[in-house]
Measured scan of single mutants.
Amino acid sequence: MSIQHFRVALIPFFAAFCLPVFAHPETLVKVKDAEDQLGARVGYIELDLNSGKILESFRPEERFPMMSTFKVLLCGAVLSRVDAGQEQLGRRIHYSQNDLVEYSPVTEKHLTDGMTVRELCSAAITMSDNTAANLLLTTIGGPKELTAFLHNMGDHVTRLDRWEPELNEAIPNDERDTTMPAAMATTLRKLLTGELLTLASRQQLIDWMEADKVAGPLLRSALPAGWFIADKSGAGERGSRGIIAALGPDGKPSRIVVIYTTGSQATMDERNRQIAEIGASLIKHW
């Protein structure tokens, strides 16, 4: 067993022997301040990774656009098919120029040779490549099948209805392509620590998230040296922004954090800054 596999296998073990965790309302004060600064709703939840206990939450059962955070769930569904012998990570998928959609920095470079399922998941999570996500959605049967996968996990809230990039439209009061912070946090925890996926697939999923290259201005910008984070960000229309993450000190994750916002007129930089400040408060009061 590799060191990384050992780390993920012992996530519940280490967490069980940690000192009790206590909620700190100071972080919620910052979440509410972010709402004021952005002029928009902000949803927040913080779960203990081992027990699933909610440590703090704000608007945990209000719907927010998922945006690209759905790509972690998508690759979880792909990995479940791999575990069941219905898919192979090494299978190569070929596609054409007509398949390319807006923001496809990886797939646009491989029109000639195609990409493997493993490479597509890596591109979808680490670079948020939209064509990679659409190609992977095709392998599982489309958005409705991802929703069905989530329902089978016990998540009857999260739903995907459309493809990239239309799913980022974020129309107010439109339930399409949305989740709730509580539902997303619980589902992410199941994917990373539950028995739904094999140990190898859980490790692969967290490795992809740990290698995320496009979430630097968010929670990662607030992390002290030595902290662990595996995350996936999302951005959408109407001032929408979000991030889902597993993080913790001492090089291992111990909490799940989900943050979503929508309806702001603020710039992307300002949305990023507010999420980073929430992260800084979380870490300060850990």
Score class of each variant (00 low, 15 high):
32 K>C: 10
2 S>R: 09
31 V>P: 01
16 A>T: 11
266 A>G: 13
116 T>S: 10
227 W>K: 00
275 I>V: 12
117 V>T: 07
169 E>N: 12
141 G>W: 03
240 S>V: 02
143 P>L: 04
115 M>D: 01
285 H>K: 09
160 L>R: 01
33 D>C: 14
19 L>A: 15
223 L>E: 02
18 C>T: 12
230 A>H: 01
83 D>Q: 09
16 A>S: 15
15 A>D: 02
177 D>E: 01
112 T>N: 13
18 C>I: 01
50 N>V: 12
88 Q>W: 12
267 T>Y: 07
19 L>V: 15
204 Q>S: 10
61 E>K: 13
22 F>W: 14
265 Q>T: 12
145 E>C: 13
251 G>N: 15
254 S>M: 14
8 V>W: 08
117 V>I: 10
196 L>D: 11
233 S>Q: 01
6 F>Y: 10
249 P>W: 04
239 G>N: 05
110 H>Y: 13
172 P>Q: 12
275 I>L: 10
84 A>K: 11
48 D>Q: 08
214 V>S: 07
4 Q>R: 10
218 L>N: 03
225 A>M: 15
86 Q>E: 12
256 I>R: 00
255 R>V: 06
150 L>E: 02
55 L>G: 07
38 L>N: 06
273 R>D: 10
226 G>V: 04
6 F>T: 07
91 R>V: 05
117 V>H: 03
214 V>W: 05
16 A>M: 15
159 R>Q: 09
57 S>D: 09
276 A>V: 10
56 E>N: 11
13 F>V: 11
276 A>I: 07
271 R>D: 06
161 D>G: 03
45 I>A: 12
275 I>Y: 05
229 I>D: 01
254 S>Q: 15
55 L>V: 10
51 S>E: 12
109 K>D: 10
261 T>D: 01
96 S>N: 14
207 D>I: 10
124 A>Q: 02
160 L>Y: 02
110 H>E: 07
222 A>N: 15
40 A>C: 08
217 P>L: 08
225 A>G: 13
283 I>E: 04
274 Q>W: 15
46 E>C: 07
199 L>K: 11
29 V>R: 08
54 I>T: 11
218 L>I: 05
8 V>G: 08
43 G>A: 08
263 G>L: 06
220 R>K: 06
195 E>S: 14
236 G>V: 02
244 I>Q: 01
14 F>I: 13
228 F>E: 04
31 V>A: 08
